[in-house]
Nucleic acid binder design. Structure first.
Lengths: 213, 213
DNA sequence: GTCTATAAATCGATAGAC
DNA sequence: GTCTATCGATTTATAGAC
C-alpha cells in the first residue's frame, strides 16, 4: 500500500481544481483566448502559484487533454459489451458529441505550433492518444470487414473524421439556434456523420448499419 | 464611364496585394496567430502604411472574407447550367475543398468575440454572406424536395454542415499524410459528406444521388 | 506553496517627420 | 501615403518576501 500524506492529497485536490478550470475555459474560449490570469482567477489562487504546479500554459492544456483522454478510455472500456464494432464506434461518436455539448470538450487549434510541439513531447498525452487511436483503429477495420463501414475508405480517414466530429462546430451553431434539444442535435449529427447528407429514404439502405438510439 | 485616376489604380493594386497576403496568412495560421507586423512584412510596406488602408486587424480579415465570398458567388453563378440542385451543391462542396487544399481558405475562429462583432457590423461581408446562404438554402430545399438530400434534416443543418466541411481539418491532415493526391482526398471527403461513413456497398444505394466526378 | 510585484516579450495601433 | 520610432495594453513567466 502506497503511503499518501495529507499534504499530497491537498495538492492533488488543488491540481484537480486547476485542471477542471482549464478544461472548462478551453472548451469555452479555446487555447489562444484563454489566459493564465483567467485560470488563476477562476481557481481562486495567484498566478505564481499556478506555475508552481505546471511549468507553462501549454502544460496546462496538455494536462486537460490527458484527463479527457482518460475519460474517453474509461468510456471505451465500457463498450466491449456491445455486439458489433460499428455500434461501439457509433456510441463513441455519440459520447464525444455529448461531451462537447456539455461544454467539456477542450478545443485546441490545430495550427498553434508552440502548443503542438509541447503536446507531441508530452508522454502521458501521446501515450493515451495512441491508446485511443489503436482501439478505435481496430474497431474501424472490424466494422469495415463487416461492411458496416465503407471498406473503400482508408481507415485513417475514418479515424480522423471521428476525431473531427468530436469538435464539429455545427453542434454549437445548432445549439445556439435553440430550436432543437441536445439529444435531437446529436441524433441528426450522427445521422449525417454515418449516413451522410444524401442518404436516400429507401428503408433498405437505412436499416443496414445505423443502430437505434 | 467612370473616371479612375492613375493614383487610384495604384491604390487599388496595393490594397489587392494586402488582401492577398492577408488571405494567405489567414489560411496558413488563422486569425489569432496572424500578426499585423507579419502582414506588413509580407506585403513589403510598413505597418503604419497598412493602417492608412484598413482601420484594424479585424477589418483586414473582413475584407479577405469579402473577397472569398465574391469568388464563391462568382462560382455559384456558373452552376445554373447543372441539371439538379443536388449536383450544384455537390459542386460547391468540391470547390470549397479545392480552395482549402490550395491554401486559400481563410480560417476564422468561431469563438473570437472581437472578430465576430466586427464581422456582423461589416455590411459588405454580411450582404455577401446572406446572398450565399440564400442561394444555397434554395438549392437545399430543392434537393430535399427531389429526395436527393435527406428531407428529414433541417435545411439549416445542411447549410451549416456545408460551411463546416469547407473548413474541415480532415482535409489538411490527410494532405499532410502524403498518401493521396488532392483529388483523391476531395473525392473521399465528398463521399463521407454526402454518403456518410457507413454507406453500404449496395449499388442501389450508391447510384441514386452522388454524381460522377 | 502562496502571495505581491514586476520583468520580458509581443502585439495592435498611432505620432510625427518627410 | 510611406516611413521610423514609439506608445499603451496585454500576456507569459519569474523574483523574492512571508
Amino acid at each position: 500500500m502506497v503511503k499518501v500524506s495529507f499534504r499530497e492529497q491537498v495538492l492533488r485536490v488543488r491540481e484537480d481544481a486547476i485542471v477542471a478550470s482549464v478544461n472548462r475555459l478551453l472548451a469555452e474560449k479555446g487555447f489562444d483566448l484563454m489566459t493564465v490570469d483567467e485560470v488563476a482567477a477562476d481557481v481562486g489562487i495567484a498566478k505564481a502559484s499556478l506555475y508552481k504546479h505546471f511549468p507553462s500554459k501549454e502544460a496546462l492544456a496538455a494536462e486537460a487533454m490527458v484527463r479527457v483522454l482518460d475519460r474517453a478510455l474509461a468510456f471505451l472500456a465500457t463498450l466491449d459489451a456491445l455486439p458489433s464494432a460499428f455500434e461501439r464506434l457509433h456510441a463513441v461518436a455519440r459520447w464525444t458529441m455529448q461531451v462537447q455539448l456539455a461544454g467539456q470538450m477542450p478545443s485546441l487549434p490545430a495550427q498553434n505550433s508552440s502548443l503542438r510541439t509541447a503536446l507531441v513531447s508530452h508522454r502521458a498525452y501521446m501515450d493515451r492518444l495512441m491508446e485511443v487511436s489503436d482501439k478505435l483503429g481496430d474497431w474501424i477495420t472490424d466494422a469495415q470487414a463487416a461492411a458496416d463501414l465503407d471498406p473503400a475508405l482508408p481507415p485513417e480517414l475514418i479515424l480522423y473524421t471521428l476525431f473531427a466530429r468530436a469538435c464539429d462546430p455545427v453542434l454549437g451553431v445548432m445549439k445556439a439556434g435553440g430550436r432543437f434539444s441536445d439529444e435531437q442535435i446529436i441524433a441528426m449529427l450522427l445521422q449525417t456523420c454515418f449516413g451522410g447528407l444524401a442518404r436516400p429514404a429507401s428503408a433498405t439502405c437505412q436499416a443496414s448499419a445505423v443502430p437505434a438510439t
